[in-house]
Computed example of a mutant assay.
Amino acid sequence: MTLLVQWELFPGLRASYTEEEAIESSYVFITSTLGARSVESATAVFEVHPKVVDFGTLILELDSAPDSQRRSIAVARAGLGAPLEPRKRFVERIGECAFDQDSRVREGALWAMTYAEWPVFRKVLRTVADEDDDPYLRDFAQETLESFDALGVGEQ
Protein backbone atom coordinates (compact mmCIF):
# COMPACT_ATOMS: atom_id res chain seq x y z
CA MET A 1 0.00 0.00 0.00
CA THR A 2 1.21 3.48 -0.81
CA LEU A 3 0.22 6.75 0.82
CA LEU A 4 0.63 10.01 -1.10
CA VAL A 5 0.03 13.47 0.34
CA GLN A 6 0.69 16.70 -1.54
CA TRP A 7 0.96 20.27 -0.30
CA GLU A 8 1.25 23.52 -2.12
CA LEU A 9 3.66 25.31 0.19
CA PHE A 10 2.96 28.50 -1.73
CA PRO A 11 2.02 29.15 -5.35
CA GLY A 12 4.54 27.39 -7.57
CA LEU A 13 6.19 25.32 -4.80
CA ARG A 14 4.87 21.85 -3.95
CA ALA A 15 5.88 19.04 -1.62
CA SER A 16 4.76 15.47 -2.22
CA TYR A 17 5.14 13.00 0.65
CA THR A 18 4.98 9.28 -0.13
CA GLU A 19 5.05 6.23 2.12
CA GLU A 20 6.11 3.17 0.15
CA GLU A 21 5.40 -0.02 2.09
CA ALA A 22 7.24 -2.29 -0.36
CA ILE A 23 10.59 -0.66 0.41
CA GLU A 24 9.76 0.34 3.98
CA SER A 25 10.43 3.98 3.19
CA SER A 26 8.89 7.38 3.04
CA TYR A 27 10.18 10.26 1.00
CA VAL A 28 9.45 13.81 -0.08
CA PHE A 29 9.72 15.31 -3.55
CA ILE A 30 9.88 19.08 -3.86
CA THR A 31 8.89 20.62 -7.18
CA SER A 32 8.85 24.24 -8.19
CA THR A 33 8.18 26.53 -11.09
CA LEU A 34 10.05 29.21 -9.16
CA GLY A 35 13.58 27.89 -9.63
CA ALA A 36 16.24 25.97 -7.76
CA ARG A 37 16.54 28.39 -4.85
CA SER A 38 12.97 27.75 -3.70
CA VAL A 39 13.52 23.98 -3.90
CA GLU A 40 16.74 24.25 -1.89
CA SER A 41 14.98 26.30 0.81
CA ALA A 42 12.09 23.85 1.09
CA THR A 43 14.42 20.85 1.05
CA ALA A 44 16.45 22.29 3.93
CA VAL A 45 13.36 22.11 6.13
CA PHE A 46 12.98 18.38 5.52
CA GLU A 47 16.70 17.54 5.73
CA VAL A 48 16.85 18.40 9.44
CA HIS A 49 14.29 15.74 10.34
CA PRO A 50 15.99 13.04 12.47
CA LYS A 51 14.72 10.20 10.29
CA VAL A 52 16.25 11.52 7.08
CA VAL A 53 18.90 9.04 5.94
CA ASP A 54 22.19 10.34 4.55
CA PHE A 55 24.12 8.86 1.61
CA GLY A 56 26.63 7.03 3.81
CA THR A 57 23.87 5.32 5.77
CA LEU A 58 22.17 4.15 2.58
CA ILE A 59 25.39 2.44 1.45
CA LEU A 60 26.05 1.03 4.94
CA GLU A 61 22.54 -0.49 5.04
CA LEU A 62 23.15 -2.10 1.65
CA ASP A 63 26.58 -3.42 2.60
CA SER A 64 25.38 -4.84 5.92
CA ALA A 65 22.05 -6.35 4.82
CA PRO A 66 21.84 -9.76 6.54
CA ASP A 67 19.84 -11.56 3.85
CA SER A 68 18.46 -11.24 0.32
CA GLN A 69 15.14 -9.78 1.45
CA ARG A 70 16.82 -6.93 3.37
CA ARG A 71 19.38 -6.47 0.57
CA SER A 72 16.61 -6.08 -2.02
CA ILE A 73 15.00 -3.35 0.09
CA ALA A 74 18.34 -1.68 0.85
CA VAL A 75 19.37 -1.46 -2.80
CA ALA A 76 16.01 0.01 -3.85
CA ARG A 77 16.30 2.55 -1.03
CA ALA A 78 19.84 3.41 -2.13
CA GLY A 79 18.50 4.34 -5.57
CA LEU A 80 15.60 6.28 -4.11
CA GLY A 81 17.83 8.31 -1.82
CA ALA A 82 20.78 8.59 -4.20
CA PRO A 83 22.32 11.97 -5.00
CA LEU A 84 21.30 13.79 -8.17
CA GLU A 85 24.64 13.07 -9.83
CA PRO A 86 26.18 9.59 -9.97
CA ARG A 87 28.64 8.68 -7.24
CA LYS A 88 31.02 5.78 -7.63
CA ARG A 89 29.89 3.93 -4.46
CA PHE A 90 26.25 4.02 -5.53
CA VAL A 91 26.96 3.04 -9.13
CA GLU A 92 29.13 0.10 -8.07
CA ARG A 93 26.82 -1.27 -5.37
CA ILE A 94 23.62 -0.92 -7.38
CA GLY A 95 25.29 -2.34 -10.49
CA GLU A 96 26.58 -5.37 -8.57
CA CYS A 97 23.11 -6.06 -7.21
CA ALA A 98 21.71 -6.14 -10.75
CA PHE A 99 23.62 -9.41 -11.21
CA ASP A 100 22.98 -10.94 -7.79
CA GLN A 101 22.09 -14.60 -7.55
CA ASP A 102 18.72 -13.77 -5.93
CA SER A 103 16.07 -12.34 -8.27
CA ARG A 104 14.64 -10.19 -5.44
CA VAL A 105 17.96 -8.37 -5.13
CA ARG A 106 18.16 -7.95 -8.91
CA GLU A 107 14.65 -6.47 -8.91
CA GLY A 108 15.62 -4.09 -6.11
CA ALA A 109 18.59 -2.97 -8.22
CA LEU A 110 16.30 -2.28 -11.17
CA TRP A 111 14.08 -0.16 -8.95
CA ALA A 112 17.18 1.68 -7.73
CA MET A 113 18.21 2.44 -11.33
CA THR A 114 14.68 3.58 -12.12
CA TYR A 115 14.68 5.94 -9.14
CA ALA A 116 18.19 7.33 -9.73
CA GLU A 117 17.71 7.93 -13.49
CA TRP A 118 21.46 7.95 -14.16
CA PRO A 119 22.66 7.42 -17.75
CA VAL A 120 25.52 5.28 -16.42
CA PHE A 121 22.99 2.51 -15.73
CA ARG A 122 21.97 2.13 -19.39
CA LYS A 123 24.64 -0.50 -20.11
CA VAL A 124 23.60 -2.63 -17.12
CA LEU A 125 19.94 -2.26 -18.05
CA ARG A 126 20.66 -3.40 -21.61
CA THR A 127 22.51 -6.46 -20.31
CA VAL A 128 19.68 -7.35 -17.93
CA ALA A 129 17.08 -6.80 -20.68
CA ASP A 130 19.00 -9.15 -22.98
CA GLU A 131 20.36 -11.78 -20.61
CA ASP A 132 18.53 -12.11 -17.26
CA ASP A 133 17.01 -15.53 -16.62
CA ASP A 134 13.80 -13.98 -15.30
CA PRO A 135 11.44 -12.72 -18.03
CA TYR A 136 9.84 -10.24 -15.61
CA LEU A 137 13.23 -8.65 -14.91
CA ARG A 138 14.12 -8.59 -18.62
CA ASP A 139 10.86 -6.73 -19.30
CA PHE A 140 11.39 -4.41 -16.32
CA ALA A 141 14.88 -3.48 -17.57
CA GLN A 142 13.57 -2.87 -21.10
CA GLU A 143 10.73 -0.69 -19.79
CA THR A 144 13.21 1.29 -17.70
CA LEU A 145 15.33 1.91 -20.80
CA GLU A 146 12.22 3.09 -22.64
CA SER A 147 11.38 5.40 -19.72
CA PHE A 148 14.92 6.78 -19.83
CA ASP A 149 14.44 7.47 -23.55
CA ALA A 150 11.13 9.24 -22.91
CA LEU A 151 12.68 11.34 -20.12
CA GLY A 152 15.76 12.19 -22.15
CA VAL A 153 18.14 10.31 -19.87
CA GLY A 154 20.86 10.01 -22.49
CA GLU A 155 23.88 7.82 -23.00
CA GLN A 156 27.01 8.37 -20.96
Rank of each mutant, 00 (worst) to 15 (best):
T2L: 10
L3H: 03
L3M: 02
L4C: 07
L4T: 09
W7L: 15
E8H: 01
F10E: 13
P11R: 14
P11C: 12
G12W: 11
G12N: 04
S16I: 07
E19R: 06
I23K: 00
S26E: 11
S26T: 06
S26L: 09
V28G: 07
V28L: 09
F29D: 10
F29P: 05
I30A: 02
I30P: 03
T33W: 13
T33P: 14
L34W: 06
A36F: 01
S38W: 08
E40N: 10
A42D: 02
A42S: 00
A44H: 11
A44F: 10
A44C: 08
H49M: 00
H49W: 00
P50H: 12
V52L: 00
V52Q: 00
V52A: 00
V53Y: 03
G56H: 03
G56M: 05
L60F: 09
L62V: 12
D67N: 15
D67S: 15
S72P: 08
I73C: 10
A78K: 09
L80C: 03
G81D: 05
A82V: 14
P83N: 08
P86F: 14
P86A: 12
R87L: 13
K88D: 02
F90W: 10
E92D: 13
R93Y: 03
I94R: 04
I94C: 07
I94Q: 03
G95N: 01
A98M: 07
D100N: 14
D100S: 15
S103Q: 06
E107T: 14
E107R: 15
E107H: 12
L110F: 08
W111T: 14
A112G: 05
M113G: 11
W118Q: 01
K123E: 13
V124C: 10
V124E: 11
L125R: 05
A129G: 04
A129F: 04
E131G: 03
D132C: 08
D134A: 13
P135K: 10
L137D: 03
R138C: 14
D139C: 02
D139S: 07
T144Q: 07
T144C: 10
T144L: 09
L145W: 06
S147A: 03
D149R: 04
D149T: 12
V153Y: 05
V153I: 15
G154E: 03
G154N: 02
